[in-house]
Design a protein around this nucleic acid. Structure first.
Lengths: 224, 224
DNA sequence: CCTGCGACTGAACTCATGTTCAATATACTA
DNA sequence: TAGTATATTGAACATGAGTTCAGTCGCAGG
């Protein structure tokens, strides 16, 4: 309810940026053309270059903007008091185009998206440490790896949202879909899926690369 | 140890296909050019079109081939007796280029990859039902959703492997990385991450869209 | 008034890339 | 040996798209 206000009182650069976010997210940075962005923003193709230098510059600007927005909204959600890692995912229904863009950016491996991933790993790790101390989360034998995995799963749900939606027979980004994902995820993350620890024990027993890779986790500090 | 045999006794079409799989996987279907594929295969660009009709035809051929290979290797793994859904992920270290290609295909949303996703959901669901009956897996309140989610997580680990590798400080597709992923995943999937069910219960209590979406799961049959 | 500066545009340029086509080499058949 | 089909190629074609550029419009300041 914030970005796509109907009025065109935004500055031309902002209109271009928003149109680019929408088009890049919908078609990908390759298929989306400068001419298409310009047409969607109601300006000439040359103006796009005038403001952003190049297509890559435009992409970088969109990256910065969307990631900053996402970071901000997530920060708000965190400061609202929720501590579970899925609150963020559930709370970001606000802007479809931004989500779509983010999904694309992660898929395409843009630098900003990679930075975001790393940041979220660090923050997830920190929050998880706190939650473990509070007794809300089980301690892990490999806290860093677990944090990476959980962020990857969270982002994976975003990147593969189209497939997940199709698989569940629900509309992409619909509240019903996010609710069902959250429900299934909570179930698995609360109770696990296995009835006993035979698989985990069996894996443990194979002792591949030993028990020492718990100690070889990189960057133990929280801020990079 | 199978696909990239050093000798060039493969037929030209096979060489082109393999080069295309490698390049498409590395650069994406857009950035990879027919000329690049031809050069990598040691043939002329025109021959690529002669054999595959068009770039889209080449992509379709690669899709079919890689997906069929993946399906076959997974079938083998399943018939070997393992029933947990992560055996497949751990067992497919055989061909890097195929994995990379598959990752790309899923990211780009190619039809073949989507079909593969749906197949794996169906199969995962079937295997999970069996495992539940055997007492190996916990019964779920939403078996279909759980199957979709687990497949999405599995594929998510594949699609985001680059980020996961960077986050864990390990080489992409290395045995160390897959081992650590499997270990962390097994831990989470065995014990969960939460110490109690307060989050799951809280979510349950909000009762959004009710308890009935367990019954609205689509296509209950296993073969689509 | 006019001078400069930023927003903005239309048209042209350049280049990469998918594709076509006529021509040649190779292999298999009669 | 002749002939035909298949494999293969070099060169050219067409087009889409990023980028450049000269120039116009509007406006603030001297």
């Amino acid at each position: 309810m914030s970005s796509v206000a109907g009025s065109d009182d935004r500055t031309a650069a902002a209109r271009i940026r928003d149109a680019a976010i929408a088009l890049f997210g919908e078609l990908g940075t390759d298929k989306a053309t400068i001419r298409g962005v310009a047409a969607a923003a109601g300006v000439s193709p040359a103006l796009v270059l005038h403001h952003f230098g190049s297509k890559e510059g435009l992409r970088a600007a969109c990256d910065e903007y969307v990631v900053a927005e996402y970071r901000r909204s997530k920060q708000d959600a965190v400061e609202s008091g929720t501590t579970d890692p899925f609150a963020a995912l559930a709370g970001v229904e606000k802007s479809l185009s931004h989500l779509r863009y983010l999904s694309r950016a992660i898929r395409d491996g843009s630098p900003a998206a990679s930075r975001l991933f790393d940041e979220m790993v660090a923050e997830s790790k920190r929050v998880m440490q706190l939650s473990v101390a509070k007794g809300l989360l089980r301690p892990s034998e490999a806290p860093h790896d677990r944090a990476v995995l959980m962020v990857a799963w969270q982002f994976g749900g975003l990147v593969l949202h189209e497939h997940v939606a199709r698989g569940m027979g629900a509309e992409p980004f619909s509240t019903e879909l996010t609710a069902r994902i959250a429900r299934a995820a909570l179930e698995v993350l609360t109770h696990g899926v296995f009835t006993d620890a035979r698989y985990a024990d069996a894996w443990q027993a194979t002792d591949r690369s030993g028990d020492d890779h718990t100690a070889m986790e990189p960057n133990e500090e929280d801020r990079p």
